[in-house]
Nucleic acid binder design. Structure first.
Lengths: 215, 215
DNA sequence: GCGGTGTGTTGACGGTGGTAACATTGAGCG
DNA sequence: CGCTCAATGTTACCACCGTCAACACACCGC
């Protein structure tokens, strides 16, 4: 009866996947993350209560969508790393991949980092794991750069490394959100976001001060 | 009948203000920005439809709350500037004020920058005005520093100044959100956020590279 | 062939944002 | 002083939402 080609093992086939697909479709089409469960179900051609066989909660559905987002973000970052060379180049690549993902999927990005949960904690462990993994990747890049002497960071000083990680992540996260929210737009009107992102990243790398010590 | 001392010009007195107060109270108490209009009205001791005499929409109420947030943020920034000296010192002060505000009012901050609107555009003009003003303040600080020769920025190069503005704002915005969302917490476990914020800011100012040119 | 379990449906409940019709009350004006 | 009227607040209602319980079906192993 169904026009879908692939196998239909159970009643619907793979409703869980279908629901996730519907949700992400709404996300990208409308740009809003505050969709209704019923709309997702409707779109999947299924009754409004069917989702509860696959997700305990609306929040669980959202968390599952976020998880897919974290996963693709993570893979984009790692592939970007693989294709880059040098500490600074790798840092640039990873930042570009991150920002590129966020700008390409604004609603998903905001769902991942913006909303439905009181805090990141309380999320399913799988979600936290991927998130932690992504941070570990960034830390690894910075640590490698520090060990290679490319940065002014003592690789043995854990705190110093952490500060650098937080700094880089903050910059990239903040830039992504400001861009998504069109706050930046009015300031710069960049033809290409990439160019602006690159210059912002450069500012982080080179700093603001004239080339000499601090303070 | 009312225990409130001040005048009660109309039926309730100043329902608009009361509703805003209720909303902010819920915001700070529960930490959630997705309250219901009816709860706000209930808390103000008024029927749920009364709010529509003062706000066209739930979104309008939220925007009004956000507006108060932007205003206090703006004043905190300007007073911080007044009390600071030197370009770098001023930049530090403004960043600290910004982060301090966000961390002290997490739910409000997320409401201001996180949520209910497809994008920042489409907000009431008053909101946009204050937001723009806040950015202008930051730009002024950076421009002054550039003119004084404190930064490696050509004050005549508008684009370069803009890049610096976006960079600083992105950093501070991202750091605030990561802190609020407890993402940073697990990485560093800072006893005092201020200390971490200061070190992050320092990283922006001094950059990552060993003290020499770029690339 | 048959029971049972996994899957989807129907229908209901309380709560929500929003609207319309009605009630009240204070202010302006004779 | 009393009337009107517009501003403010209330009641009643709508469609929709998230969630749950009861029911229907269909495929599984036996």
């Amino acid at each position: 009866m169904n026009t879908v080609a692939s196998a239909a093992p159970y009643h619907h086939g793979d409703l869980r996947r279908a629901l996730l697909d519907s949700a992400t479709a709404i996300l990208t089409e409308t740009g809003r993350w505050d969709f209704s469960l019923r709309e997702v179900a409707r779109r999947a051609g299924v009754s409004h209560a069917a989702s509860y066989r696959h997700f305990t909660d609306k929040e669980a559905l959202i968390a599952a969508v976020a998880l897919t987002g974290y996963e693709t973000l993570h893979t984009r970052m790692t592939t970007a790393i693989d294709e880059a060379t040098g500490a600074v180049g790798t840092l640039r690549a990873i930042g570009q991949a991150y920002i590129g993902f966020g700008v390409a999927n604004p609603a998903l990005y905001r769902l991942m980092f913006g909303q439905a949960l009181p805090s990141i904690e309380g999320l399913p462990p799988a979600v936290l794991a991927v998130l932690t993994e992504a941070r570990a990747v960034l830390r690894g890049v910075i640590l490698a750069g520090a060990r290679a002497g490319a940065f002014t960071i003592d690789p043995e000083d854990e705190q110093e490394v952490s500060v650098a990680v937080v700094t880089a992540w903050s910059l990239v996260h903040g830039f992504t959100l400001l861009t998504i929210d069109r706050v930046v737009d009015r300031e710069v009107r960049p033809q290409v976001i990439d160019a602006l992102a690159a210059r912002v990243a450069e500012r982080l790398i080179t700093g603001l001060l004239p080339t000499q010590g601090r303070k």
